[in-house]
């Protein structure tokens, strides 16, 4: 399989990282970067040079607060670019185990955070119905959600690829 052209994908989506002047406002505005190795400026530089960034752990440290995107003097949609690079990585089979797990929860329950017994009890004590007015209460609605997930190929996408 050939390497995906990240730069082209970004540019085709209107995410013009080539206008970046490497001023570092993004990294200076990044709350995650204070505590993690996330260096937003470096991600944008790598994207500009189209060098490999799909295996870069930093990709997953962005909390999507949008500070960098709001403050970028070139108006580059930096968070949108990071999310798109993540998309390319996921489609290459690169995904953190925890993210596979929440994907499986959505595939199974239609909720990323499904109900549990403790919450059912809390709901009853509050005078609410045990199950909320969501896919939890309507099996036919959950079936629709599953149909959509399958139609989009999400089930196959998030299953760990066998080498």
């Amino acid at each position: 399989m050939s390497e995906p052209d990240v730069l082209k994908t970004l540019q085709d989506a209107g995410l013009d990282v080539l206008t970046c002047m490497q001023c570092g406002t993004c990294s200076g505005s990044c709350p995650s970067g204070r505590y993690t190795s996330l260096n937003t400026r470096r991600i944008v530089r790598k994207a500009r040079k189209n060098s490999d960034m799909l295996h870069d752990d930093d990709l997953w440290m962005c909390a999507t607060c949008y500070n960098c995107q709001e403050r970028c003097p070139r108006g580059i949609k930096i968070v949108d670019a990071i999310l798109m690079i993540r998309t390319i990585a996921v489609h290459e089979g690169i995904m953190l185990p925890a993210h596979r797990k929440i994907s499986e929860l959505v595939l199974k329950h239609g909720h990323a955070v499904p109900i549990n017994d403790a919450t059912k009890e809390k709901r009853k004590n509050l005078g609410l119905e045990e199950l909320p007015e969501t896919v939890h209460k309507y099996p036919e609605a959950l079936a629709d959600v599953k149909t959509l997930l399958e139609s989009c190929g999400f089930d196959k996408l998030v299953v760990e690829k066998q080498e």
Partner: peptide, 29 residues
């Protein structure tokens, strides 16, 4: 009113970044 049968939105920072068509399909539903 209630919105019976709604699902996960689905969460923007994760599912949107995994696969846009999935994110749009579930959100649009």
């Amino acid at each position: 009113s209630d919105l019976p049968g709604a699902s996960c939105c689905p969460a923007p920072g994760v599912f949107r970044s995994f696969d846009k068509s999935t994110w749009l399909a579930l959100a649009s539903r």
